[in-house]
Simulated scan of single mutants.
Amino acid sequence: MLRKSVYSLAAVLAGIGAALAGPVAAQAAPAATTSGECVTDAKLVPNCGVLWGAAAGGFTGKPRDEEHKNWEKLSGRTATIFHTYHKGDEVFPTQAEMTMARDKTKPRVLLLNWRVEYGSTWANVAAGKLDKRIDTFAARVKSTFPEKFFLVLNHEPEDDVRAAGSGMTAKDFAASFRHVIKRLRDKGLSNMVSVVAYMGNEKWMAQSWWKDLYPGDDVVDWIGIDSYVSAEKNYYHAGVFADLLDRKAPKGIGFYDWATKQHPSKPFMVAEWGAYHRVGKVVDKSKQFNSVLPELAKRPNIKAIVYFDTKNDATGDRDISIDSAPSSLAAFRKLAASPLFNVRLR
């Protein structure tokens, strides 16, 4: 979330369906329906198309469900993925979240972000010292929420890595992630789909420990990235949609290429994305929004994109909203209207 401190496709959709499915779908996707519609499988991977989602109302203090509904009206499409954030012993899924997921007229799936280690360390989580917290969550989900859901553990872990002995090293994160997912599965949470979500920032990808963050294919269902671009020229991370996917350390490879080459069986989620400019400026984001569809057509492993919308980021200096200029909103609504995002949850 910018650090927590944050070709019209109608005529060609059928022809690119198989291409968009790619190697991930070939291994895990459900069979195409007789009507040719795009649907999700047991791990929420669509057999064609791309899941569309949002995290709206960030840093406002307003109810996330209401902000999500308002954003859907603004953008012109139901945001199928409803992204929310929790930490420690917070009670979730909340009633509001469950209600959103059970809306028959606008079906949605929860993307729950959870900092299990909150108030402690990854090493303590891995050692079983927070098992009561994990087991309480498992029992709550089993008794109240049988629907499928995405679960992200400590998104953007790179920014939280500390020195050896802190309990917060890259290897500690991987061990923590493994422990939580395995324990939740052992408790019978078969409706949980795990996501590891990185910042994918070149600053961190250059670190010697970066490779140690990955928890393992056996506990990771989806690989995600939280990444943003500036619509302002000559400003930090200025670029288009491809740039937020392709950041790399010197002499390294881009994040999308790393994920798809090292873990080709894993679907790829852009778990947070957005185009920003400095607060108080009016900058057209059309170029950024218009660049999305061509990139999705070239990157078949991307199965979901989730926009993070806020008028002010965590530091209060960046506007990531889709309606900061009329031209930006028009371009975003055109993007949202693409049939590529017509994916039915099942």
Rank of each mutant, 00 (worst) to 15 (best):
L110A: 07
K285E: 11
T260M: 02
T80F: 04
D217F: 01
H68E: 04
N201Q: 14
A101K: 06
A29M: 01
P264Q: 01
M98D: 11
G17R: 14
Y7W: 13
P215Y: 04
A29G: 05
G17F: 00
T121G: 05
T33G: 14
V292N: 08
F82W: 00
N342I: 14
S194W: 02
D246T: 15
S166N: 12
F173V: 11
S291H: 09
S328G: 05
M168K: 14
F308C: 07
I81E: 08
G224V: 05
Y85R: 12
T315D: 14
D159F: 13
V220P: 09
T40S: 02
E156Q: 11
V116W: 05
M192G: 05
N70D: 15
C48D: 03
D323W: 07
D243C: 07
A19M: 11
A42G: 13
A11M: 12
L340P: 00
A54M: 13
K233V: 11
V141W: 06
A259H: 00
V270T: 10
A26S: 10
V180I: 09
S327N: 10
I320A: 14
R278W: 01
W52K: 00
A314W: 03
K142N: 12
F145S: 10
V193E: 08
F289H: 14
A56T: 05
P146Q: 12
V125N: 02
V152K: 04
L112H: 03
R185H: 13
K281N: 13
R185F: 08
A197W: 10
H179D: 11
T80D: 09
R102N: 15
G316M: 00
A18V: 09
C38S: 04
R108H: 15
A231M: 03
H83Y: 10
A314P: 01
A32M: 10
D226Q: 10
N154W: 12
N47E: 07
V24G: 02
V50N: 05
T144Q: 11
D317F: 00
N154R: 14
F82S: 00
G188Y: 03
V279L: 03
Y276H: 02
D319S: 01
R278Q: 12
L340C: 09
M168A: 05
S120P: 00
A26E: 05
R344W: 09
F150I: 10
C38M: 03
W71P: 04
W222L: 04
T169Q: 07
S286C: 12
Y228Q: 05
A325Y: 02
A271Y: 02
A55D: 12
M205Q: 11
F150E: 03
T34K: 13
